[in-house]
Design a protein around this nucleic acid. Structure first.
Lengths: 130, 130
DNA sequence: CTCAACCATGTTATATTATTACATAACGTT
DNA sequence: AACGTTATGTAATAATATAACATGGTTGAG
């Protein structure tokens, strides 16, 4: 019953590449990065990505089909995440989500939903670009 | 200078299909729905979808690569949207976003971002399914 | 008017993202 | 050792999205 620790070999390889990247990585870009480590085909990458997302170790930026390492220890619990995405420099930053989480979960209650996670993406201009 | 009114022929056809659907539609499903109306190829659909999203007439559910009609008049202004997505019955509902909008835009200010829009997707179980 | 600029459309081909399906191996449990 | 379970490997293909280029219609400046 793998949970939290004990990543498998492929999961470790994929997570390592994502953690070392300064920007969100796409699945096929990850694949080309790990060919030398013996990962040869898309399903191997996608399987690892799925599990890592499940564990809260990484997040998928849905609007970009790309993956980033979680920068936020509490995601392991909630799997909820919030990002700001700069439309000029493309920088993606994970927002410390404890306040947002509290607010959004109370909101979910109000609309009668049993909420498990959320994904929030802000678009605009970051400090540098505006 | 087309804005708001005056949808083009293809935009009308695509919007019509989306508005009549009770669930989010994917681009290729839209395509197969409108073949009989003379739309033959993906770019015609994707071009219409892009414009309709720009105008705030429809929204893209990023986690599903699917499109729904906007149910919320103020989206035309902000282009921001929030959805609840049931993981059991797959129902997607647009959340009336005026309160969330206010909260999230103040949040964006706080983190120093000049925010243009956001996309928020809640996952969980809807009233019926829980 | 007319032609030049612009935008919408049409069409083919291809790029990109993701999954299915099946075969093999590794590992713990009894 | 035999079994069930999970991880891995591999080939093929499905599903999503865009590039590139050709055609046609509308409009408004000259």
């Amino acid at each position: 019953m793998q949970r939290q620790q004990n990543l498998t070999k492929n999961q470790k390889i994929v997570l390592d590449v994502i953690e070392k990247s300064t920007e969100p990585l796409k699945a096929y870009s990850i694949l080309s990065n790990v060919k030398k480590k013996g990962i040869n085909a898309p399903p191997q990458v996608y399987r690892a990505l799925d599990k890592l997302v499940d564990m809260g170790k990484i997040h998928k930026i849905e609007s970009k089909n790309a993956f980033v390492a979680c920068q936020n220890s509490n995601c392991k619990v909630s799997k909820a995440a919030a990002f700001s995405i700069c439309e000029s420099c493309e920088e993606v930053t994970e927002i410390d989500n404890s306040k947002i989480s509290k607010y959004l979960s109370s909101f979910a209650d109000k609309i009668g939903m049993k909420y498990k996670k959320y994904n929030l993406e802000f678009f605009g201009l970051c400090k540098k670009c505006k």
